[in-house]
């Protein structure tokens, strides 16, 4: 089912965010088996994917579009350094504008349109009432720097990775809904550096293999993977920057409120080669689903229980689940009597 944007809901304070039955049905449940294990779970992101699914198009616009764009605006006003682009990434930012605008206009013509006349582009975003004309490639003709301009019109976080010397460098991005990583701190890092804090995977050679694969991604053949964690309350901005605001949430989980408080947070990560700059665009599209909504699907409820129960302690720690992991497993166990 294709989703139409609904009026703005909040990802902070009173947390009015909610998923409609259609949004629950299309939620990208990330576990292919009962036990969680690390793997380089990368697959081709072939579009169009199944109709109405989150995989249908390069960029998924759903019922939370207006809410997420309003949330992004709050974060950027509070801290403009949540968006950055090093000077050598200008062409890559224009690659991103081209890729995003062309896909949005082709995939959601009811919301977006793009008119190209040589270098003169006209962009119309009817959802946000944006109507701009600019010269392609000339950043001075945009009302905002190119990364921020585009990033404020697409759901999910974006990073642009410069490829040089066989490695990838985190040299540009807009990151307002991260699962606990800081763009300001990680800026400029190589692939293995910014994955530095991830436990176990380095020893397993996961990142060496992934890097070889990613540096060889050709134009027009994007790949995707799913990543997950748990978040207490429907909070998009779980950044280290704002951790003092949301850390106490983790201590607020009780046996009675697991279902409404604890959310499965899934990132649909897509890596797409940028044609003009040879950079990689890394989009991280976040979906949140409360456990109450999750258990409406009995298969998901059972599997979520088994995954959490067998999660290695290093990962419980790394994902920051320590304070409520046991409560969540206990709460889910009623949906999985066999285990």
């Amino acid at each position: 089912m294709r989703m139409s944007p609904k009026p703005v809901q909040t990802f902070r304070d009173d947390f009015t965010y909610s998923n409609s039955p259609g949004a629950i049905a299309r939620f990208p449940f990330p576990f292919p088996e009962d036990e969680y294990r690390y793997s380089v779970n990368i697959e081709p992101h072939v579009t169009p994917g199944p109709e109405g699914s989150v995989y249908e198009f390069l960029l998924d616009i759903d019922e939370h579009y207006l809410s997420e764009m309003a949330e992004r605006d709050i974060v950027l006003k509070e801290n403009p350094q949540r968006c950055l682009a090093m000077p050598h990434m200008d062409l890559a930012c224009w690659d991103m504008i081209e890729r995003c605008m062309q896909s949005l206009a082709a995939d959601y013509p009811q919301h977006f349109s793009l008119t190209i006349d040589g270098d003169q582009w006209t962009w119309h975003n009817r959802l946000l009432n944006i109507h701009d004309s600019f010269t392609f490639g000339d950043s001075s003709t945009l009302p905002l720097p190119p990364m921020e301009y585009m990033g404020r019109q697409v759901q999910g976080d974006f990073a642009l990775l410069d490829q040089r010397d066989g490695d990838l460098f985190l040299d540009a991005g807009i990151v307002t809904c991260p699962a606990d990583w800081s763009l300001a701190f990680d800026a400029g890092m190589s692939f293995s550096e910014w994955h530095g804090p991830v436990p176990m995977a380095h020893e397993m050679g996961v990142f060496d293999r992934a890097l070889k694969y990613l540096t060889a991604i050709p134009v027009g053949r994007p790949v995707r993977r799913l990543n997950w964690t748990l978040t207490v309350n429907a909070r998009m901005d779980t950044s280290p920057e704002t951790y003092p605001n949301w850390g106490t949430d983790r201590a607020s989980v009780t046996a009675d409120n697991v279902g409404e408080k604890v959310h499965l947070r899934v990132e649909l990560q897509v890596l797409d080669r940028m044609p003009r700059s040879n950079a990689l665009m890394f989009s991280i599209r976040t979906y949140l689903l409360s456990f109450d909504d999750l258990v409406t699907n009995p298969d998901w409820a059972r599997r979520m229980h088994r995954v959490l129960k067998t999660l290695p302690p290093e990962l419980v720690e790394y994902k920051g689940l320590g304070r409520y992991h046991d409560l969540a497993v206990e709460w889910l166990s009623r949906f999985d009597p066999a285990n």
């Binding site: 050598h88 990434m89 062409l91 410069d162 490829q163 040089r164 050709p218 134009v219 027009g220 044609p275 700059s277 040879n278």
Partner: peptide, 12 residues
């Protein structure tokens, strides 16, 4: 085939 690149400029 679509273009591929193993000889891109060092932008910096």
């Amino acid at each position: 085939t679509p273009p591929a690149n193993f000889f891109a400029p060092a932008w910096h």
